[in-house]
């Protein structure tokens, strides 16, 4: 079981080290790609970025292209690693599920004080939707970027139709990537989501937060433990029967809410 409850520290492992590396490799290289891609527009000289300390290189298109290429190597390799690794493991926890759009609306309303948010699995429904959207944007950026790179290296006289399509897809999805990034940052700034920031920085979130907000995730873990199913099924969405079965539901109920937590040591330590 990948997730580990550390009762003594009041933490639960939400992301394994490999997932943290994937996330930050894509995030940091993605930011560098945004910056160097912006300089390629061309903007550095016009907007005086070249005058800023440490950014004098930004006006040299060959230097910024090399920076763009270097960041792309990490970005593409990390994205393809993610797809292959989790695809082969059958990790489906972030794949959107039926009803996610409707539930997301309920959740977003709850952020503004309208109604209660429903209990969550490991990921929120809007996280699953955002993941699918971001994955699509990244896939289009990579595909169009590879065509452009191939053209730069081997085929400057490639079909103009293909070049134009790749260029405009790259430019449009560049803008969408900026919007998606801003949306991602906005989401983690929302108060109910803030405890998850710790998760993507350290791998663990507070156990009381998880019990309060992600009871279905904990229930899945319990069920797996009971069935002695090794990882990574904990990332898969809980089967519908779990929600209807009174027995697992009871297990959810026995997880004390943060303000009711009296004897954490009474909970079974999971390794």
């Amino acid at each position: 079981m990948a997730e580990k409850i550390r009762e003594e520290k009041g933490l639960i492992v939400r992301h394994r080290i490999v997932e943290l590396i994937e996330h930050w490799a894509i995030a940091l290289s993605g930011l560098l790609l945004l910056l160097s891609g912006f300089f390629q527009m061309p903007t550095a000289n016009r907007y005086y970025f070249t005058s800023l300390p440490g950014l004098s290189w930004s006006g040299d298109f060959f230097v910024s292209l090399n920076v763009h290429y270097a960041a792309s190597i990490l970005f593409i390799a990390a994205a393809l690693f993610h797809l292959t690794y989790h695809g082969m493991r059958g990790d489906m926890g972030m794949i959107p599920q039926k009803g996610d759009i409707k539930t997301s609306i309920t959740v977003i309303k709850s952020f503004f004080g309208k109604g209660e948010e429903p209990p969550f699995h490991k990921y929120l429904p809007e996280q699953r939707l955002a993941y699918a959207g971001m994955a699509f944007i990244i896939a289009m950026l990579i595909l169009s970027g590879l065509i452009k790179t191939f053209k730069n290296l081997y085929a400057p006289d490639m079909s103009l139709t293909v070049v134009l399509a790749a260029t405009w897809v790259h430019n449009i999805f560049f803008a969408l990537f900026v919007l998606a990034f801003l949306g991602h940052i906005a989401a983690i700034l929302l108060k109910p989501n803030r405890p998850m920031v710790r998760g993507i920085l350290t791998g663990s979130v507070r156990l009381d937060y998880a019990r309060h907000r992600h009871p279905l995730w904990l229930a899945e873990m319990e069920m797996e433990l009971a069935n002695e199913i090794p990882a990574p099924m904990e990332q898969a969405p809980a089967p519908a029967v779990l929600l209807e079965d009174p027995q697992p539901a009871e297990k959810v109920d026995v997880i004390p809410a943060p303000d009711q937590e009296t004897d954490p040591s009474g909970k079974k330590e999971q390794s």
Binding site: I73, I76, A77, L80
Partner: peptide, 15 residues
Amino acid sequence: GKLVLAAPALGIAAG
């Protein structure tokens, strides 16, 4: 640029 073109294979192999 050549390494960029090789990056998908690297990622898939590592994954």
